[in-house]
Amino acid sequence: MRLEPKPAPGLVSALLYPAGAILATLVIASVLVLIAGASPFTVFGLVAKGAAGSRFALLETLTRATPLIFTGLAVAVAFHAKLWNIGAEAQLYIGGVVTAVLGTGALPLPGPLLVPLIALCAMVAGALLLLGPAVLKTRFGVDEVVTTLLLNFIVLLFVSLLLEGPLKDPMGMGWPQSAALVGEARLPRLIHGKRLHLGFVIALVAALAVWVILRKTALGYEMRAVGNNIQAARFAGIPVNRVLMKTALLSGGLAALAGFSEVAGLKGNLSLDLSPGFGYTGIVVAMLALLHPLGVVVSAIFVAGIFVGADAMSRAAGVPSYIAQVMVATALLTMVTAIMLTRYRIRWR
């Protein structure tokens, strides 16, 4: 068999194949639900209800989507330039560390000054963390996939070290967690008494900003040129290495904002369970959105809905909530296949 590029993917196939991908994901998940001894219709009904069936559910989904928008954007930016940043998890945690260090009373500033300053410092830390692998890639030819993956483990151990040492909350009853943030450092809640916080709005603004950078600036053009064909970009006189550096800084900074927003907006302190894999899920979010920054918002909410819904479903129907991770991973694989099929035709001989 061989692949043949289609002249121009029609609207029908552009919609049909992704719809097929979602259908295939649901079919595979249904089989697993049946194996677990439950009815797929009941389970999917409970997932949908748990994700969007009430005002509480919907707000919870948006809250969960917030870090995923940031990590999804981080991955989308990096993948645009084919910089394979698999280390959003580490950059997220570094953002959380900076927030916990600066937000627990180290800086006596009023909120309107303190919060942006912390966000900026978190971004710088995350950006520098990804700059390392980017420099190793451009200067020494070290594959950034492996270095960013390994850094995830290093940073998590570093956070654990901090939480059992210098950042440990003296009032924490021995739990490895930081002290609570001071009131001035917290992101306000959007609705009184609900968990959704200002971080969600910042995430939306970030998505818009990334869209502008990618579509309307020279940097965005250069990033796509590098991603499409690095040799051609080099011949065209684009400073490839410098573009990759800027991409790394932007991507790392965005992922760090996820950690900032979770600590300052939701948790109020730093702990080792800050992220249940938001960095890795960000890859799925970005790919489902075809790396489009505004699409990232939609896919982050969709993926968050599956996770929040599956938690609720698991409590009610007894099917393990890991089904959500399986669905998200399956959706990633079926969606990349679907996108390929919209662009190529399979010739069997």
Partner: peptide
């Protein structure tokens, strides 16, 4: 990465 996520979660 997708295979790792799928295999692990499965």
């Amino acid at each position: 990465i997708g295979i790792t996520l799928l295999a692990t979660s499965l």
